[in-house]
């Protein structure tokens, strides 16, 4: 049993290729999460703001993203963008773009919820103590908002990592795609190759996502809102 498992990973550059696939998966996840956070904060502040038309538009954007499967969005951008607007993006660029569109919408909603859930008197008491507007923001509002935000953001990050295998459909060599290629070749000689390779990928995803979700739960308990 163990020999059959090891032989799959030792054959050729299989293990190295899986690690390269993991690299692609992590690259998409990290870039998309980082961009989502950066873009999501202003979007969330606008969502919590006073301009009704802007709020309407952002709401519509969020609802569309929530209802549409990410895979459909990947197809839209990968197969239509090039034809309609004559823009040619690589599969990698499309993946990061689509994941960021999704992440920024969700992040925006998290920021909106965190900002609007803070009671008004936090501002008022801050100012009554003689703090300036900036001081209230930095010493009162932001620290509290970040605490409310962090568990949700970490949760969103794991959701994005778990959605990265979708790039398989636009032929990006991520962990799952590489795994499939290896199984296709090794499966001829080793009938159990699919068990070992997909089992290995299953464990890798679990090893990445489980600690992150534990962190999110720990923070939720530590800073109950």
């Amino acid at each position: 049993m163990l020999d059959s498992a090891l032989s799959v990973f030792k054959m050729g550059r299989n293990l190295a290729r899986l690690m390269e696939g993991l690299g692609v998966t992590l690259e998409i996840s990290c870039l998309a999460v980082a961009l989502s956070i950066v873009l999501g904060i202003p979007i969330g502040l606008l969502m919590a703001g006073q301009r009704p038309i802007v709020k309407r538009i952002l709401r519509l954007y969020l609802e569309f993203i929530r209802v549409m499967p990410i895979l459909v969005l990947l197809f839209l951008f990968y197969y239509s963008l090039s034809k309609i607007w004559n823009i040619n993006l690589s599969a990698m660029a499309v993946s990061i773009l689509v994941f960021t569109l999704w992440g920024a919408a969700e992040m925006g909603d998290l920021v909106r919820a965190a900002v609007t859930s803070l009671p008004r008197h936090q501002w008022d008491s801050g100012r009554a103590l003689g703090l300036t507007e900036t001081q209230v923001s930095f010493y009162v509002i932001i620290p509290q908002a970040v605490r409310r935000l962090l568990p949700g953001v970490i949760n969103l990050a794991t959701r994005m990592i778990k959605t990265t295998p979708f790039v398989f459909f636009i032929n990006l060599p991520d962990l799952v795609k590489v795994g499939q290629q290896i199984v296709e070749v090794a499966g001829f000689r080793n009938p159990l190759a699919s068990v070992w390779v997909y089992g290995f990928i299953f464990i890798i995803y679990f090893a990445i996502c489980y600690p992150i979700s534990l962190l999110s739960r720990y923070l939720e308990r530590r800073w109950p809102s």
Binding site: T158, K162, T163, T164, P165, F166, F168, V176, G179, Q180, V183, S194, V195, Y198, G199, I201, F202, Y205, F206, C209, Y210, S213
Partner: peptide, 14 residues
């Protein structure tokens, strides 16, 4: 903590 696609691959091919 694992993606559906990986679960499906394991179920269907493994």
């Amino acid at each position: 903590n694992t993606p559906l696609m990986v679960q499906l691959f394991f179920l269907y091919f493994g």
